[in-house]
Amino acid sequence: MPNVIIDPNSCKGCGLCVSVCPKKIIKMSEDKINKKGMHYAVMTDSQKCIGCTFCALMCPDCVITITKDDEESDGHV
């Protein structure tokens, strides 16, 4: 299963990842801000993620890391 890891404090809140997510499961945080004072991107439903990497491709600040669970391992990457 794909795992999207977003580093909240590097995010500048531009929202490009939100605009390209085909499953619409990335949202901007509504009530929280990060160290930069920005609303940051959060993954709302990782179960629906298809691991297309579009969010990471469009992120200008390399905030997003994507991992996939190895099939033979016990689920930890």
């Binding site: 794909p2 590097s10 500048k12 809140g13 531009c14 929202g15 490009l16 920005m38 691991g51 990497t53 990471a56 491709l57 469009m58 992120c59 200008p60 600040d61 390399c62 997003i64 890391t65 994507i66 991992t67 996939k68 669970d69 190895d70 990457v77």
Partner: peptide, 25 residues
Amino acid sequence: MVVFKKPHALTDVPMHYCPGCTHGI
């Protein structure tokens, strides 16, 4: 397995570009 991560040739210095500037990409 890592599918996507920051490339090694980029440093960890936060870029000064404005939010959403495609210079970062």
